[in-house]
């Protein structure tokens, strides 16, 4: 399957890139504004959610992940999954130590 996609052309238009860029700038502004408002504990979550959305845009559009073979997406998933699991396991120690 991978071989078929070997010569996929990335025919993205300039316009699409500029739109993505505008979205990224808007989201940056949004993060900065939201940081001013005190959401308490939620503010980290909100900031990270926005950062994830931004990274998703960069990954799929600027880095053309959406037109790459499926293996590439699996790779990303593996890497992020590993980080997530490590994070969880690491906090199985820390969150309970502080809680004591």
């Amino acid at each position: 399957m991978e071989n078929l996609k070997e010569h996929t052309e990335h025919s993205h238009s300039y316009g699409l890139y500029v739109m993505v860029w505008l979205a990224l700038i808007t989201l940056t502004g949004l993060t900065a504004v939201i940081a001013g408002i005190n959401f308490g504990k939620l503010s980290v979550v909100v900031a990270l959610v926005i950062a994830v959305i931004k990274s998703y845009l960069v990954l799929t559009e600027f880095m053309h992940l959406k037109s790459e073979p499926r293996a590439f997406k699996t790779f990303i998933f593996v890497a992020l999954f590993f980080l997530l699991v490590s994070f969880t396991l690491l906090f199985s120690d820390y969150s309970f130590i502080i809680g004591k």
Binding site: V85, S86, L89, S92, S95, F96
Partner: peptide, 22 residues
């Protein structure tokens, strides 16, 4: 194998949860 690292640290005084899981 990537998820069991803290079994090198059972004696370091980790939380009971971590000891259990690892």
């Amino acid at each position: 194998g990537s998820l069991v690292w803290a079994h090198h640290m059972f004696a370091t005084g980790m939380s009971n949860t971590a000891e259990f899981v690892f």
